[in-house]
Design a protein around this nucleic acid. Structure first.
Lengths: 335, 335
DNA sequence: TTGAAAGCGCTAACAC
DNA sequence: GTGTTAGCGCTTTCAA
């Protein structure tokens, strides 16, 4: 292994000069710099990053906690994170947590054990909860996508309530009155906000929200399939269903078709996220599109501020959404 | 920050004893052990992992190079990797490379710079190609899923040629004679093998493979959509299309339906991978299912052998596939 | 079984 | 502008 010492000998300078040439090139003479760089090249020197990190007490590693990398929405967020991180010379350590708190805590411990500088959490859980961190100083973390109720850290989010209301308004404008909903996991603030937006729209239209028309799901196609089965066989069948994710909407559409009904003829179906498959489903999905990559970029920018000891301004960023109308929703045909 | 020194003082032992208690508990007296563990608890001590890694010259970090985490097949492989790695007390650093060689090389450099012990590469590219590594000793790498032509390292793979032949045989058995193909990127060995299997089946059935019926894609729904557009508008329209990924098959089905044809009535469509959406497409996809998680588990097992300086036996693992027949393929109706 | 002590490769004072 | 040197926190001889 070639160390900095070997390079120093080769260049006829001290190890300090080699270190400076690599970290603060301006501070050494052009002549020295050339000499050192040549020696680095000749020796095939690559710094031992662990030694660097050990000594300088920072790693330039960012831990990203993703509930599941399989989700295409998260995949886009990740792209945004990587792009922004690399531009600022940070590395991204992606952690597929499967939504398990134990896994999230284990990965977050990479910060307390000095293997990473900060955390970007994409789910509503504080992985430092059982830690001494965050009692006094700000946590080295930002929360994105699904946001903590009591944010002990900066957040980047969507106005889920407004977006859900917008989507429900669209269904109401098409004449729908019996609008079912397939929501996400009970504990999720994101789900709670979207349900609130759905209720807002119904109330504004003079309709009475009925709890029994809200079915729980978990964002997978399978859960959408199952919930749609229950919705479609009610005797007061809904004429429209709002799914909190495109994955669930795709499952729901299949279930509805299997029971001999048509989409949107008998039941309109709307999703949320605008994943790639949304435009390839049959019929193509009406949905809410989110600027997924921007979530990632914003989160990185804010985290780097936090790591510098500053408070990002604004501390809570809200990103815009867009209603994308495709063929899965249509005017109600019967009443 | 609590260091090992503080714990040692608290327990009234030397730092060496604290270290031993944590790493080699058997080597210290139960009494000492208890004393130390109590001090660890009291001090809220967490070892500085960077110092540990620096000193012991290993990190127990595994770098995983994934072309795109958005792909649901890779997501399953990742799950398998994580499961196996954690069981052996290794951490997984997931790297979303977008298939860019520069990104792969940058992440692989985490090994040469001591930030990770080894690499699991899911694509057919040697990220150490421009490195001094691997000239003499074996590379700290295993290759999975899509396998290098000249493997300088152990591999875990599917018999893509046999699987493609099996799927094509299925179409031939249904009476299809004009079978189109939507393949993957040109340079990919995986694609080359699947095309070979497709040809094997045609030849065995006395059919003449026709290069003009093979259209290039890139595994995305969009590329399947486009290629299917060309296939479906040929005057000698195929009665079946074999897509090298389910994603492309889903795009192809939509395009075929849009042109007023039915699947499988006019054209049967088959995919490859058996992703979650495969059973939720309309019609549900006939496809080849792969033991994705097993790819991950096998790759980890082999890599850990390599890191121990052993040669894994066997050095090349071939995993089984399975033909899953659903509704997107049917007997040919006209000739 | 335990302790003392020598570093791992690098950075950052400090001195020149 | 460059060199000397003192560690960063831990593991691992070696000796007791």
């Amino acid at each position: 292994m070639t160390t900095i010492r070997k390079v120093a000998e080769l260049a006829g300078v001290s190890v300090a000069t080699v270190s400076r040439t690599l970290k603060l090139p301006d501070v050494v003479t052009p002549k020295t710099r050339a000499k050192v760089l040549e020696a680095v090249e000749a020796a095939g020197y690559e710094p031992n990053m662990i030694a660097v990190q050990f000594r300088s007490r920072r790693t330039r590693n960012l831990v990203v906690l993703v509930p599941t990398v399989a989700n295409t929405f998260f995949a886009r967020v990740i792209s945004g994170i990587q792009e922004a991180a690399h531009r600022q010379d940070y590395r991204v350590l992606l952690c597929n947590t499967l939504g398990e708190e134990a896994a999230e805590e284990a990965y977050a411990r990479m910060v307390t054990t000095r293997q990473a500088d900060g955390v970007i959490q994409l789910r509503a859980y504080n992985p430092f909860a059982n830690t001494s961190l965050g009692k006094g100083d700000p946590l080295p973390m930002v929360n994105a996508c699904e946001v903590l109720d009591e944010p002990p850290c900066p957040t980047v989010t969507l106005d889920n309530r407004a977006a859900a209301r917008c989507l429900t308004d669209h269904l109401i404008a098409l004449g729908h009155r019996r609008i079912g909903m397939i929501k996400g996991p009970r504990r999720s603030p994101l789900t709670r906000d979207r349900v609130a937006g759905y209720r807002d729209a119904l109330l504004a239209a003079g309709l009475v929200p009925d709890e029994s028309w809200i079915y729980p799901g978990d964002f997978t196609p399978k859960s959408g399939f199952e919930a749609a089965g229950e919705l479609a066989t009610r005797k007061d069948r809904p004429t429209a269903i709002f799914c909190e994710s495109d994955e669930m909407a795709i499952g729901a559409i299949q279930r509805i078709k299997q029971s001999g009904l048509s989409v949107p003829g008998d039941i309109s179906v709307a999703g949320f996220d605008d994943i790639a498959f949304a435009s390839y489903s049959d019929p193509p999905l009406t949905t809410i599109s989110q600027p997924a990559e921007a979530f990632g970029r914003e989160a990185v920018a804010m985290l780097i501020e936090v790591l510098k000891g500053k408070t990002p301004v604004p501390a809570h960023t809200v990103l815009p959404y867009e209603l994308v109308v495709r063929a899965s929703t249509a005017p109600v045909t019967s009443i």
